[in-house]
């Protein structure tokens, strides 16, 4: 009887429904995936300032607006700054609601101008980390309202702008590290990993310039690794800094790693790292 009933249930579910909505065009899912890839708005909602204020529009030009900082003299990448299009210099400012979503403090408008929410200012800028060629543009920014500070990667390309931002020092202690990782992700390439599983085994080996101080198998972080995936954690040293890293690998796949700077944890211990990771996954946000 039970088998029959389960068979009936399975058959009923499998058959689907008369009036289920038509499948959506796959292109919509692709576009959403691209946006997610580009716009890892971790902790965006925590910004809280949902009421849109007036914004200051700052042209992405060397002689830009007064609230703009001096460009960083040591850019992360060696690339010429973009040359904004003519229209960028004469186009009227975009509507705030067209550019900044609640919780966002900086972004490009459709003409490649940097738009800032009122009360926020740029305190550091890395020009064109994505090597965009005018009229496309990109910028790495550190913005603050005097109380909170956020790190931004702005991208303005032929398919529209995108913005990635994080609260400063969320997982990386230095802006340069965060920007390098976000730039890699934006380009669709995996960031250089601190560790990787050696061969087919479950032991981690260090990446170039990395020293593994200690490693643990199967860290207890619900939601991090799927059933059947390998997982491990490591404490590593890179350029004099200490990180904890979660690593996972699907069968036959490459190692995926998520590092957290130990100095950002309540204590530089494995237990504190696990607590941090569990909290991040329990919230649904994850560590990325």
């Amino acid at each position: 009887m039970s088998t029959d009933l389960w068979d009936e249930v399975a058959a009923a579910l499998e058959a689907g429904y008369d009036d289920e909505p038509d499948p959506r065009p796959a292109g919509g899912y692709v576009a959403r995936g691209r946006r997610r890839l580009r716009t890892r708005r971790l902790g965006a909602a925590a910004g809280g300032a949902a009421v849109l204020a007036a914004v200051v529009v700052v042209a992405l030009l060397p002689q830009g607006g007064a609230s703009r900082s001096t460009p960083d003299p040591t850019p992360v990448v060696e690339a010429p700054a973009p040359t904004p299009s003519v229209t960028a210099t004469v186009a009227p400012p975009a509507k705030p609601s067209d550019v900044l979503v609640p919780g966002q403090h900086a972004g490009y408008d459709g003409n490649g101008n940097v738009v800032l929410r009122r009360g926020w200012r740029i305190v550091r800028e890395v020009p064109n980390p994505l090597h965009r060629v005018a009229p496309e543009a990109s910028a790495g920014l550190v913005v603050t309202d005097g109380e909170e500070t956020y790190w931004y990667l702005l991208d303005h390309d032929e398919v529209g702008g995108s913005t990635t931002w994080d609260p400063a020092s969320k997982a990386y202690a230095r802006f340069e590290e965060w920007l390098a990782v976000m730039t890699d992700l934006q380009r669709g390439t995996e960031p250089a990993a601190y560790v990787a599983f050696a061969g087919d085994g479950t032991v981690l080996e260090p990446g170039v310039g990395v020293r593994i101080l200690r490693q643990w198998a199967d860290p207890d972080v619900p939601g991090f690794a799927a059933p059947g995936e390998d997982s491990a954690a490591a404490k590593v040293e890179v350029d004099g800094r200490t990180y904890f890293v979660l690593a996972r690998r699907s069968p036959g796949g490459p190692t995926d790693t998520l590092p957290v700077d130990a100095s950002l944890l309540p204590a530089p211990t494995y237990d504190a790292f696990l607590d941090h990771a569990r909290e991040a996954y329990a919230s649904g946000e994850g560590l990325r």
């Binding site: 899912y29 692709v30 959403r32 995936g33 691209r34 946006r35 997610r36 890839l37 669709g188 995996e190 799927a226 059947g228 699907s250 069968p251 036959g252 796949g253 490459p254 995926d256």
Partner: peptide, 19 residues
Amino acid sequence: QTALAKLYVSWPRLHAAGT
């Protein structure tokens, strides 16, 4: 939509592994 967007982000790794 959420699931497919996450899949897109991790596509190279998951597609290679067939998972």
